[in-house]
Design a protein around this nucleic acid. Structure first.
Length: 315
DNA sequence: GTACAGGCAGTAT
DNA sequence: ATACTGCCTGTA
């Protein structure tokens, strides 16, 4: 039996690290034995737990009085603060949401779920791969890309590969990229790498820019549309108001929030997957962000995971 | 074999 | 402006 690593109390806040990793926002994390390993750009991140000698005196403790330890290779001191967003005031964020049955259920069910910060460039490449496919396929593509174009690092006697840089991917040919299972996305990856190398996507600017301004820049890139731009903005560019709308969120919206969407009253109550077009995306996005507020992205992450798991999805 | 899942870009209406 | 279709890889 594996020990649960799940809940950890950091700075008085309960964070469920495993739920956060498993909620569909992270692609390159895996559990080996009693530790979790993740790829963050050119770093390997790791955390694991062990029994505490003197539990009361250490704040990094989970429910079973186990200490949690964070590592990184090469060293990236304090990465857990950054990656698990310990600077977010989660109580305040949750209290900022409207009274909402579905969201309340999701938050209760997945208590401790957090957004996680991703490396911006890795995040861009990851979500360009995410276009029109599922999470297992995305993982497969990203693992292939890392294995083929990343740098090998040995940790704890295991082999890991860093995520390739824009320069690495820009050097690759479309055919090399295709061999990673990217299909027609290979062209988009190549053009994204080129954009980054040419300085058209400056992360510093995108982070300090407004949601609208940053999104405008992302949408100029071939292969980045509304949904993928919103994922990148939310997961790596500090735009917590971004609310990515994929097929799962569309279902949640049409079932539970039709009153927010159908100002013209002609939306169908169709159970089946119905893709939305550009204008619908903009309309949905604006009204839902008005409803959930400046931390809509947190609401999205809870709803997304809740919808997926209600449907019995295992990724 | 056939149907289907998934977001974006390009073309047709 | 709005609707439709092709793109890939994989599973059921």
């Amino acid at each position: 039996m594996l020990q649960p690593l799940s809940s950890v109390c950091l700075d008085q806040e309960i964070i469920n690290l495993e739920i956060s990793i498993n909620s569909g926002q992270m692609f390159l994390w895996k559990r080996i034995d009693n530790a979790w390993y993740g790829i963050y750009g050119e770093h390997i991140l790791k955390f694991s737990t062990f029994v505490a000698d003197n539990p009361k005196q250490n704040k990094n403790i989970n429910k079973n009085d186990r200490l949690i330890e964070f590592y990184s290779f090469p060293d990236m001191k304090g990465w857990e603060q950054h990656v698990f967003r310990l600077d977010d005031d989660i109580k305040y964020i949750l209290s900022s949401f409207p009274n909402d049955t579905l969201l309340s259920n999701a938050i209760r069910r997945f208590s401790g779920l957090r957004l996680m910060r991703q490396d911006p460039y890795q995040c861009m490449f990851s979500f360009v791969c995410a276009s029109n496919t599922n999470i297992l396929m995305i993982r497969r593509m990203l693992n292939s890309l890392s294995r083929k174009f990343g740098r090998r690092i040995g940790v704890d006697g295991k082999e890991f590969f860093t995520f390739p840089t824009a320069a690495d991917l820009n050097r690759a040919t479309i055919e090399d990229l295709r061999s990673c299972g990217l299909g027609y996305r290979a062209k988009a990856i190549k053009l994204l790498a080129e954009s980054i190398i040419q300085g058209n996507l400056d992360v510093k600017y995108l982070i300090q820019a407004s949601y609208d301004d940053a999104k405008k820049e992302l949408l100029k890139v071939y292969g980045i549309g509304n949904k993928i731009a919103d994922c990148i903005l939310l997961f790596s560019l500090e735009k917590l108001e971004a609310f990515p709308i994929d097929i799962w969120i569309t279902r949640a919206l049409s079932h539970h929030y039709s009153w927010l969407l159908s100002h013209n009253g002609k939306e169908k109550e169709n159970n089946k997957s119905k893709k939305i077009n550009y204008d619908q995306y903009i309309t949905f996005s604006e009204s839902i962000r008005k409803y959930f507020g400046k931390y809509s992205g947190y609401a999205q992450q809870y709803l997304f995971y809740y919808m997926r798991q209600s449907a019995g999805k295992k990724w």
